[in-house]
Design a protein around this nucleic acid. Structure first.
Lengths: 348, 348
DNA sequence: AATTAGCACTCACTATCCGCGAGTGCTAAC
DNA sequence: GTTAGCACTCGCGGATAGTGAGTGCTAATT
C-alpha cells in the first residue's frame, strides 16, 4: 500500500510529532532525519500521504500531523518496539521489589509506576471473577449484631465485608452456618451462585427462619461482591503537563469523562473480552476508534495481565493520541511480566 | 478595632469577591448592597481598610480584594452561618440514606458529597486509632502458606490483611495461636502493643520457634497497621472549574502539592491534635497561615468528626482562599452530624 | 519520469498600539 | 464628616502589521 519511502516519512512524522507536539514540516523533517532527498520531494510525498488519509493539516499552511489512520498504520507496521532503557527497567523493578501479597496492591502499584514514568493517566482493572470458583466462606462474629464475612476464591482473591446481623445469633451458630454454606457451595462458579443456592446450603440449621434469612442474604451479597471488578485511575494530574491540555476547559472535560468510571471500565473490559488472548497481549485504540464520548482526542493502550495463567484483568495507559506508543508498549509488557512473576510468587 | 461601617464594608467586599472572583470597586459595592453613602465615602473607608491590612489591590487602579487578614476577620467576626438551603440538605441526606456499615465508606461518601456540592477538593482522614483498644485478633487459614489476619478494635474498626506464613502450620494451630494472642492483648491500647508483647502472648504454643516467630511478626504488623490513618482526596478535577485555576501551570502545581498526601494529611491531623475539642468543631486556615509549600493561595476548612464520642478523624475542604466559607462551614457541620448519627447507628 | 530549485502565497503567532471603562486618590465645596 | 468633581491609572479587548515556517505549483534539471 505504501512504498518504502512513504513509510519512512510517515514514521518520521509520527515520531517527530510525538516529540514536539507541533505540526512537522518538510524542512525540519530533513534536518532531523538526514534524508537524502530535497524538501520539495518530501512535500510531494506528504501531499500524497495526506490524500490517502494518513496525514492531515491543522490549517492550510502548516506542517502535517498524523491522522488516526496514520497513527494506526504506524502502530501496526512501522513501530519497532525496542527494549526499555536500563534506567526505566530499574525504576520499575524497584517498585516491585518489596514483596506485596495482595493482588490489588500489586496492580495499583503497577498503575502508579506506569503513570509516573510517562506522565499519562494509567488505569487498572481487577480481574473478572465471575468464572472463578468459590473456595471458602467464613462468618466471623465481631460483636453482637455485627459480623465479618470472608470470601475466598480459588483464584486467590480474598475479600471481606462487614455486615449487620440479628443480635440473637451466637458466634458458634454463625460459624457453623458459615461452614454449611462453604460446604454447599465450594467449587461452584461465582456466576452460578444464587440466593436460593445459598439458602439451600444453609437450610438445615437450628436457627429461626427470620434470623437465618437475613444472614444468608448478607452472605450472598458478600459472595456476589467478590466478582465486582474494581477500577483504579492514577496520575490524572500528570496529564496537565501535556501541551494538549494547556486549555483548562479541555482538561476539565477530559477529566470529567474519565470520572465516568463505569463507562471507561466497561469499555476496557469489553475490549479484552474476546478471550483466547495470550497474557500480555496489548491493544491500541486511537482517537475516533474509541467509541466513547469525550475520548475523541485520546488513545488507549491496554493489556491483559494474567494471574496463575487464567484469571486476568487489564492495565493500561490513557493519553493524548500523541503518545510514545513504543515506549509505553514496552513498559506495559515489562510490567505485565513483573505482575505475573510477583503474583505466581505470592499465590503459591 | 473596626467600626460598624468598616465591618459592613469588609463583609460586603468579601462576599462580592467570593461571588464574582473579581476585584470589587466602590461603585459596584453601592449598587449591590444599597448603601446609603456615596462611593467617595466608600473609597475613603476602603483606603483605610487597606492601610490596616484588611484589603489589598492587585494593581494601582483596580478594585479591592480581601487579604488573608481580611478573610480571617470575616470568618471570625462577620460571618453569620446560616442554615443550609433545603435542597442542599436533601442532596446530602440522600447520600447517607443507604445504610453503610463500614466507617471508611461512610467517610468517603461524606467527602464525595462535600466536593460535589462545592466544586472544591475535599479531604478525609480516618481516625487515629493509636489510643484505641484491641478487641479481637483472628488468624484464618486461607490455604497452606497463606493466612488472613483480622484485627478488631473496640472503637469498631475491623481491618484485615493477607499474609504469607510457613507451610507447616495447620489451620487449627493457627486458630489457637490467634486465640492466644487475642487473650493476651485484648483491652490493650494499640500504641502500647509491641512485638515482644505479641510474642509473649503467643509463647506457650506447641509450634516450632522459627514458624511461630514468622506468624507472630505478621500478626504484629497487622495490628500495627490498624492504627495507620488513611487519607482520601476527592474531586481534584472539580477545582479546574474555579477561575483561579484557569492557568494550567498553577493548577498543576497545586495538584502536585496535593499529591504529597503524607504532608497534607499530617498537617490536617496535627491541626486538630490539641484534643479536648468538641465533635464538629471546625477550623479555618487561610492562605499564608498554612505553613505548607504550595498552599499559599488556598484555604483549608477542616473539622473533626466523632465516632462513638471518642475516636475522631477529620474531614475538610481545600480550595482557593475565595471560598464560600459560610456555605461550606454549614455543610461540614451538617455532614458531621450525619456521620455521627450513621456511625452510632452502625456501631451499635 | 522523478527530483529539485525557485517563488508566490497562506496563516498562526507576536508585538504594538489605541481606546474603553471601571477604578482610584485628591481637592474643594457642602 | 461627606460628597461631587476631576485627573489619572491600568488591565483588557480589538485592530493592525511584521515575521517566519510552512505550503503548492511551475519550470528547469537529472
Amino acid at each position: 500500500m505504501l512504498d518504502d519511502r512513504k513509510k519512512q516519512i510517515l514514521k518520521a512524522v509520527v515520531e517527530d510529532y510525538v516529540l514536539s507536539a507541533e505540526p512537522v514540516g518538510s524542512k525540519s523533517l530533513i534536518n532531523r532525519h538526514r534524508l537524502k532527498v530535497s524538501s520539495a520531494t518530501i512535500r510531494n510525498e506528504m501531499a500524497e500521504l495526506e490524500e490517502q488519509g494518513f496525514l492531515e493539516k491543522p490549517y492550510t499552511s502548516a506542517g502535517r500531523i498524523p491522522s488516526d489512520k496514520g497513527y494506526r498504520s504506524y502502530v501496526e507496521d512501522l513501530l519497532e518496539i525496542g527494549e526499555m532503557s536500563e534506567s526505566q527497567a530499574i525504576a520499575i523493578r524497584s517498585v516491585f521489589s518489596d514483596s506485596i501479597i495482595e493482588l490489588t496492591d500489586l496492580i495499583k502499584k503497577a498503575a502508579t509506576v506506569l503513570s509516573q514514568q510517562n506522565d499519562y493517566v494509567s488505569v487498572a482493572l481487577t480481574p473478572r471473577y465471575a468464572d472463578s470458583r468459590l473456595k471458602q466462606v467464613k462468618l466471623l462474629m465481631i460483636e453482637p449484631g455485627r459480623a465479618l464475612v470472608v470470601v475466598v476464591l480459588a483464584a486467590g482473591l480474598v475479600k471481606d465485608r462487614l455486615v449487620r446481623i440479628p443480635d440473637q445469633i451466637s458466634g458458634e451458630e454463625l460459624g457453623r452456618l458459615g461452614e454449611a454454606i462453604e460446604e454447599g457451595l465450594a467449587g461452584k462458579k461465582l456466576a452460578d451462585i444464587t440466593l436460593v443456592a445459598v439458602a439451600g446450603a444453609a437450610a438445615d440449621q437450628a436457627i429461626p427462619d427470620a434470623v437465618l434469612n437475613q444472614v444468608v442474604y448478607e452472605a450472598y451479597i458478600s459472595i456476589k461482591q467478590a466478582e465486582h471488578l474494581e477500577f483504579y485511575i492514577e496520575g490524572t494530574h500528570r496529564l496537565l503537563k501535556q501541551p494538549e491540555y494547556k486549555d483548562v476547559d479541555k482538561a476539565h472535560r477530559f477529566l470529567q469523562a474519565l470520572g465516568e468510571e463505569k463507562t471507561v471500565a466497561g469499555y476496557i473490559s469489553d475490549l479484552h473480552e474476546g478471550g483466547g488472548e495470550e497474557c500480555g497481549e496489548y491493544m491500541v485504540r486511537i482517537g475516533q476508534e474509541i467509541a466513547l464520548e469525550g475520548f475523541e482526542d485520546t488513545s488507549f493502550i491496554t493489556s491483559s495481565y494474567c494471574v496463575n495463567g487464567d484469571v486476568y484483568g487489564q492495565i493500561g495507559v490513557i493519553g493524548p493520541r500523541r503518545m510514545d506508543y513504543g515506549k509505553i508498549i514496552s513498559q506495559i509488557r515489562f510490567i505485565n511480566r513483573a505482575i505475573n512473576e510477583a503474583s505466581s510468587d505470592a499465590a503459591r
